[in-house]
């Protein structure tokens, strides 16, 4: 099979970008989308042209490095799948495919289809962790966690931080990512001591990065390669309100036991 690619090319962050059209060489329909780009790049390099820059790493859907908005949908035509696990058999022979980078002010484009997602790292660094070492794998049932909570926490922990939620949202809002990271710890006992500090710090960092606000359009949920639910956004909204109402940690009173 062969396809036509309409690809966003941009030399660097400052240079203005634009679309260019490329004809692919003969492709195997069982190639992944990224393998197709590899083949196109090999062809471009052979002709002495600058290959198309794109992000990729594990290519098995767990690292969150691949991006791309394919025909208007982040991570291509399927639900619950990242670009790296999208295959050329999902496209018709001879079709034109529009490939764009993830677009948001907090995700500046570095080159072509590669954008800088360090804003997500800074949000994580603001509170997406547990400060105190919780020990290695505990014995089973030494810390009791309700099944529903552990299931939900694992759903949230599926987030690979790819940024598709931001790319899809009409407001470029990062609420789904931040709420998944907040809920992941907020649902487990080890995350409780810092629960309120975490949500306020992460939301504050999210706002500082310049992401938009949530208008409950549902785009993020629809494109998330890990099918993370909007429910987590509601959970974060609730946690943030409770955290603000309760205020910061109280100063320890003098004296007392011990």
């Amino acid at each position: 099979m062969k396809v036509t690619l309409k690809v966003w090319r941009q030399k660097d962050q400052k240079a203005p970008g634009g679309f260019q059209i490329y004809q692919s060489p003969e492709l195997n329909p069982n190639m992944s989308f990224l393998e197709m780009l590899d083949v196109v790049n090999e062809d471009l390099a052979g002709r002495g042209e600058d290959p198309i820059a794109f992000d990729h790493d594990c290519r098995e859907g767990i690292c969150g490095t691949c991006s791309l908005v394919i025909d208007g949908k982040p991570h291509g035509p399927h639900q619950g799948v990242a670009t790296c696990q999208t295959y050329m058999r999902s496209f018709r022979n001879g079709v034109e495919i529009v490939i764009e980078p993830f677009r948001a002010r907090p995700f500046p484009i570095i080159k072509d289809l590669v954008c800088d997602r360090k804003s997500f790292d800074r949000i994580q660094q603001a509170g997406g962790f547990i400060s105190v070492r919780t020990g290695s794998t505990p014995d089973a049932n030494s810390i009791l966690i309700p099944k529903e909570n552990s299931d939900l926490a694992m759903d949230a922990a599926q987030c690979i931080g790819c940024g598709a939620c931001v790319a899809a949202c009409k407001n470029a809002s990062a609420m789904l990512f931040v709420s998944a990271k907040v809920s992941h710890f907020g649902l487990l006992p080890q995350g409780q001591p810092e629960r309120h500090r975490r949500v306020t710090a992460m939301v504050q960092q999210m706002d500082e990065e310049g992401f938009g606000a949530c208008t409950v359009t549902g785009s993020c949920e629809a494109v998330c390669p890990k099918s993370i639910s909007l429910d987590f956004i509601a959970r974060m909204n609730r946690d943030f309100a409770v955290a603000l109402l309760k205020g910061g940690p109280k100063k320890p009173s003098s004296g007392g036991a011990g």
Binding site: G72, R105, K170, G212, A213, T217, S219, A222
Partner: peptide
């Protein structure tokens, strides 16, 4: 909030956008 949302994406998409969003939510 609308101004914030607009400024969060200075360059829009060519291949269509707001995939999977409820249409009423886009016209509030």
């Amino acid at each position: 909030l609308t101004l914030l949302n607009r400024s969060a994406r200075p360059i829009g998409y060519a291949g269509g956008s707001a995939y999977g969003s409820a249409w009423k939510s886009r016209y509030m």
